[in-house]
């Protein structure tokens, strides 16, 4: 029997080769005039933008997980004003465009609070936006843990905090993982909008490069690759985590 890992690797290679060939053939058929030498001279700019995107995404991910957890707890609170406040916050953040949130948040709110660091403000605003989605993913996972588990937790004598800490959250994490990974991938891509508050992240760097070197796709193809270099390992790591948390119910 062939080793399943080897088989998967071979198939992965075949599929990638096929896709590259298709892409190449398509470009060849439209006679696209490549001009890589101009693009190459902007490589350090490109790397700098990539680093900025990574740093902002990492910071915003941490903010979004904290915000998501907080909003989820708030939405399940027995205190009516708190519950309504968190529900309203989730709906506002999810329902309005990120672009508007960034513009209002940076030029009005952060300005009023005298915070002038666009990177810091960008991280927080992006984190809040994605956190609203995460709150709903977390809430769905927590509420899917059935009443019999809650009763069993109470029966062995756990108080509320112990019940969440030892019974509900460990089981909910597994159910929240696939959705959370998807949301973090979205977050990385949504970070491209931060150029509107003057952050020169990857997409903005590529736009600058394209306009000054009179090229178009020479910037955008590496751009797609640069995002995939981050998002693919993230998805891979998440599926490993899912397997680690796997247990039948």
């Amino acid at each position: 029997m062939p080793n399943s890992l080897t088989r998967r690797l071979i198939w992965t290679f075949v599929l990638i080769a096929g896709a590259s060939l298709l892409l190449y053939a398509t470009f060849a058929s439209v006679h696209y005039p490549w001009n890589w030498s101009n693009a190459w001279s902007y490589r350090f700019q490109f790397l700098w933008g990539w680093g900025t995107t990574l740093a902002i995404s990492l910071g915003a991910s941490i903010v979004s997980i904290l915000v998501g957890f907080g909003l989820m707890v708030g939405r399940r609170s027995p205190t009516t004003p708190l519950r309504l406040f968190c529900h309203g916050t989730v709906e506002l953040l999810r329902g309005s465009p990120l672009l508007v949130q960034l513009l209002l948040g940076y030029y009005i709110l952060a300005n009023r609070l005298n915070i002038n660091d666009p990177i810091l403000v960008g991280m927080i605003l992006l984190g809040f936006f994605e956190g609203a989605y995460l709150a709903e993913i977390f809430r769905g996972a927590v509420e899917s843990i059935g009443a019999s588990q809650r009763e069993a937790a109470k029966a062995v004598g756990f108080n509320k905090v112990q019940m969440y800490r030892h019974v509900i959250i460990p089981q909910a994490i597994r159910r929240a993982l696939p959705g959370t990974t998807g949301q973090l991938v979205s977050l990385i891509k949504d970070s491209s909008l931060l150029s509107v508050i003057g952050i020169e992240e990857l997409v903005q760097k590529v736009r600058i490069m394209n306009s000054s070197s009179y090229t178009a796709l020479e910037g955008y193809l590496p751009l797609a690759a640069a995002y995939l270099i981050v998002t693919l390992p993230l998805s891979w790591y998440a599926s490993r985590l899912e397997r680690r948390f796997a247990f039948e119910t």
Binding site: E151, A152, A155, F158, Q162, H166, V167, R174, E248, T249
Partner: peptide, 29 residues
């Protein structure tokens, strides 16, 4: 906490082993 309960549907914690199901409440509670 002075009583012990057993239910119709067992209600063990599915993410823990049999031993951990017994030891966790002993340690935490």
């Amino acid at each position: 906490r002075q009583n012990g309960f057993v239910f119709q549907g067992y209600n063990l914690f599915p993410h823990l082993t049999a031993l951990q199901n017994v030891t966790l409440p002993l340690m935490v509670v």
